[in-house]
Nucleic acid binder design. Structure first.
Lengths: 335, 335
DNA sequence: TTGACTCTCCAAAACGTTTCGGAACAAATT
DNA sequence: AATTTGTTCCGAAACGTTTTGGAGAGTCAA
């Protein structure tokens, strides 16, 4: 224990000098520095993190609060995001602190504790909402943060997102090009920004082509809810020939609804999703969808965070990654 | 800042007395204690965590290292486990620290850092392996830990697991009862304990019924790998009539393989899985599977951890939860 | 010779908490 | 009256690090 002290006495130096040697200050003789570094490496010295935090006033910790909604948020891709983040943060000896809280009072309390106790130096906001109290809270408290996803605010903030609007414009345009005119959109709850952006992409594409843009239905981001919404649309005498869904899980429900109506997916009705979850390759027929590179997103989030911590602001406020379109049989494409 | 000091001077008391009043020591007058507690609550006082950690020598933090294997470990259920854990730990003001590391040298280094720096008071091991260096490492370092899943060791350790063996015995027995005699098992990589236990359940059931127990094939826990393994079995002239799969993802691949052979799932060949992932309800036909209550597991993990931290050992070393069988059309049951 | 400057090093304070070992006083016991 | 016991409080040390503000010795210029 008391490692800095024992290192110092082993070397016949003061604690101060050892500390400065390791921190790379210029005020210690070059040979002394080398000697200290070698000794430190030999015993695998790493400064006690609590002491360091106390003295320096920051924690080298990043907090991420998962919104655990009642309807859950089971996203498998989230695990991968955590893995990429963890990796990237660890490279700079930062810790990732994970909290769980239901949106609402509980969530607010969690952020307030982070802020008040300065338990973390910065936050990552996921599942960003259109009107997001978390953003306001952190801006007011002057805690650095980066959002995964966008929000609607005047005040500048940092974010990383996929270009859902362009992605949905593109797929809708493609379907229009194939002759579809009645293209419906199954949207996720519109308090979530990604849902709004994807809907906007579909909407713009339809408007530009002078097609009816009233075929939007909102549902939860679950298979069950998607199935119900799709069934409603298909029951109409003037049913859509295409279902552009905000997420793969919704699309999987939609596929089921189409089949329950006695129609054939990919021929009578085409279906598309977003996320490229594993199951999307194993629906029958396989699901046309689009994909965001999680590794890019995770690394970009971490990099922006460090720019924020190092320089006070990132080189670029927001970064939007393009989506990769994945065409499969659910839109009649070759598998 | 310097909150304890300012609280003390506001109240005209010493720092010592304020500290002891809040900690509930018996050595401060009851009315003083009340006065202090009221004042602390009023300003929302919470002790500086770095200072507390430094002084007390423990961190009120639990570490969880995700094994990020090359073939990934995308399990959606893991997100829910994290959420439950986070909730339960937060109730006792413990933080959850998340690390990511590839099994092997990187993983070892991560654990060594936790141990050496005492960054966390205890660990949670997930994806427990049959021969698990993590268990040995933590036992040697005398760091409390709880495993999600079991390992093969003489030394007693704490764990929480689902009863995969019983679950697979039960489903296999059920299929035997229905007249199946050629029942194959698609197993996950057998370095993972859960894979071994599920295989054992299938094996015991087959042996007890005097049926051929040579129809076991190993594959990765992915749809793709499951599909290949299943296709191999189905190509045989003496093909199995049942595919008992270690996971739903394997089972989803198996379903695809059956259909690719021109056979009908649920009639010609029945298929079963494990996990009850969302997609399992939306295969065609829906997948018979079994489910472990994640909330139970998460809460049990946290509780065991606290018993370990409080008392040095838990009331019960290991807890095994029963699995809930979910019968669907892939075994010809009513949906 | 003196003063200024450079180079290396270090003692001590500080971060905010917990806790050891009393102090001061009143009440009870001998 | 003297001693013990109990109650309530507090000063000061400690946890391990970083950082401030020099100290001492040597070098260079005036």
């Amino acid at each position: 224990m008391t490692s800095l002290r024992s290192l110092a006495s082993d070397l016949g130096l003061s604690i101060t000098t050892v500390s400065r040697a390791l921190d790379g200050y210029g005020d210690v003789a070059i040979e002394t520095r080398e000697r200290v570094k070698k000794a430190a490496a030999a015993i695998g010295y790493r400064p006690n993190s609590a002491a360091r935090r106390l003295r320096k006033g920051f924690s080298e910790t990043i907090a991420l609060v998962m919104p655990t909604e009642p309807g859950r948020f089971y996203e498998p891709v989230f695990v991968e995001l955590l893995a990429v983040l963890g990796e990237r943060l660890a490279a700079r000896h930062y810790d990732l602190m994970l909290l769980a809280a239901r949106p609402g009072a509980e969530e607010q309390a969690a952020y307030r504790r982070i802020i008040k106790d300065r338990r973390a130096d910065a936050c990552i906001i996921v599942r960003t909402r259109r009107h997001d109290e978390r953003v306001a809270l952190l801006q007011e408290a002057d805690i650095p943060f980066v959002c995964h996803g966008r929000t609607e605010t005047q005040v500048p903030y940092s974010f990383v997102d996929g270009d859902g609007e362009a992605g949905f414009r593109e797929i809708t345009n493609r379907l229009i090009g194939r002759g579809h005119t009645r293209i419906a959109h199954l949207a996720a709850p519109d308090r979530l920004t990604f849902a709004e952006l994807r809907a906007r992409g579909w909407h713009l594409s339809m408007r530009t082509a002078n097609l009816a843009d009233d075929l939007k239905r909102s549902c939860l981001a679950t298979e069950e809810s998607g199935e119900i919404a799709a069934a409603g649309l298909l029951a109409s005498s003037d049913r859509p020939t295409a279902l552009v869904c905000a997420t793969d899980r919704i699309a999987i429900g939609a596929v089921r609804a189409v089949q329950a109506s006695g129609l054939v997916v990919g021929r009578d009705v085409v279906v598309t999703g977003h996320d490229n979850i594993h199951a999307a390759r194993y629906t029958n027929p396989a699901l046309t969808t689009m994909e965001l590179d999680v590794r890019n997103v995770g690394e970009c989030l971490a990099d922006k965070l460090f720019e924020l911590l190092d320089a006070g602001e990132p080189k670029q406020r927001g970064t939007v990654f393009p989506l990769r379109q994945i065409l499969r049989a659910s839109t009649g494409e070759a598998t």
